[in-house]
Each structure stands twice: as C-alpha cells, then as structure tokens.
Amino acid sequence: MAQKLIQHVIDQASQVILGKDMQIRLALTCLLARGHLLIEDLPGVGKTTLAHVLAKMLGLDFQRIQFTSDLLPADILGVSVYDRDSASFKFHPGPIFAQMILADEINRATPKAQSALLEAMEEHQVTAEGVTRQLPEPFFVIATQNPSYQIGTFPLPESQLDRFLMRIELGYPDAKAERALLQGKDRRELLAQLQPSLAPQELAALQQDAMQVFVSDALLDYIQALVHFTRQSPRFQNGLSPRAGLALLHAAQAWAFSDGRKEVLPEDVQAILPSVAGHRLRPGTEFTGESGTALAQYLLTSVSVP
C-alpha cells in the first residue's frame, strides 16, 4: 500500500523532472527518514524544480528563501514589529515557519545567515528575541547549492554539512530526457497541474513505518564495518561520525521501505551511501583531490559485506 503511494509520487515527479528517477527516489527517501536534503549542482539543472515538485506532491506548506549575500537571520526567522493597535511588539514569523523550506543557493549567503537556518534544522525550533518557538511538523529543509568553485560562494563548513542527511547531485539529463524536455510543455505549467498525492498525516505515518523496517545484526555489522573503515584508513581525513552512522541506518531503512521490503539489505546501504556519506568524507592529507563520491565508492569496494 505504502509502496504504491511512494511509487505514485515518484512517477508523478518524474514527469516533471525527466530522467532523474534515482535522484527523485533518493530525495523522497531522505524525507521519509526525516532528514534534510542538500542538492548540489550547477544552476539550471532542475534543483529548484525538484524541491517544488516534492513539496507539491507531499502536500506540504512550502516556503522558499532565496539566499543572497545580504540576507540577515531576521529575514529567515522573522522579526517583531511594534503594533500600534495593541501597543505591543508583535512577532511576524519569517519564512522558516513552514513545513517545507527551499533554501535556494544556500552557499551564497554569509555564514551568519546560514547558521540561522541550520540551527533551526537541527532543533526544529527557532529562538528569536528570547522566545523559543516550535517549528511546524513535519519540517524539511531542501537546500540547494552551487558547487563551491563558483564565484561568490561561502562553502558550508563540515559541521553544517553534517546536518544534511543526504547530498545529491542532479547532473545533466541524458540525451533522451533532454529531447523530451525540449519538446515538452513548460515545466511551470506542469508543476501547477500537479496534485498532492499525500495528506500531511499520511506522510507522518509513512515516516513512522519506514523506521520500522527490520535491521538485522548482520546489517548493523556491515554499517559498523563501513564506519570503522573510514576511521582507520589514511584515505580519509576523518572517519564518519556516530551521527553519520545513524544517518546511514535511517536512510537505508527508508530506502528499503520505499522499495517495499521489510528488512534492510546491504544493497540498500550501498544505494544510499554515496549520498549520505559523500559530503561527510574528506580525503586524507596524502590523497588530496579525491571527491567525496569517489571516496564513497572506494569505501564500498573496500569493505566486504559480512
């Protein structure tokens, strides 16, 4: 039943974003595992569209924050304004008070503005002017970022990258998808036609079910072996954190769930590992120049499935 729903979401989304089924499924997995998603790629490959589609399909209350270099924390969190009628300050919530936030081009903002968002991501709450306010549930952040070698960017520090459950790259569409894109309708029109496939409470139920997927000792052995390997091999500057280990587990559960299985297989871990670990791994001092994705692949080929 749940699988049908999920498959439906994927099918619908892939009509708008062509030829990116894997990425769509990863994004959905990320949301099922209650994680935040970072999409990293060049401008114009459909990052924003993907975020739009997901929000629309899941029927979530959606806000978009365009990050710029002059963005201030108050622009995200909200600000208190003096209300003459009530003769008091009234808090005007910022765009963060929504179920799904699209933080567009997050690495264009200053670290100060970035951290305002990232704190909210971790705590699911916002502290502004001494008052702590709960954010709505579910709460997702989909951030997009340009590769940091683009001009005018503030790359996210590792500690903040760690808050994103997954980082995915969209990449250029293949020739067939590109042809269909060129021939097809305007994406905005398509987006507008999309109908939500889930009610908000359905999503919460799916998330709960996903975390019920069975995890055997053998699989935990595998995850531990993977994490352990990164902590020992000189290939990696530093090993995966315990949080990353949990992220691997939850993402693998969600992936297995989206595949309609009741147990997690090593293949599930392998499917999500490049997205979950790729942005957390740095090459060791003697192996500079290797990308996170290459490191993740190295990790997968080096650790045997127990």
Binding site: L265, P266, E267, Q270, L300, T301, S302, V303, S304, V305
Partner: peptide, 9 residues
C-alpha cells in the same frame, strides 16, 4: 562475488 558486493546484486 566481489567482497563489497551485496547478495542481491
């Protein structure tokens, strides 16, 4: 079977 290959693959 490659060491890192899952059973289904």
């Amino acid at each position: 079977r490659a060491p890192g290959e899952g059973p289904v693959d």
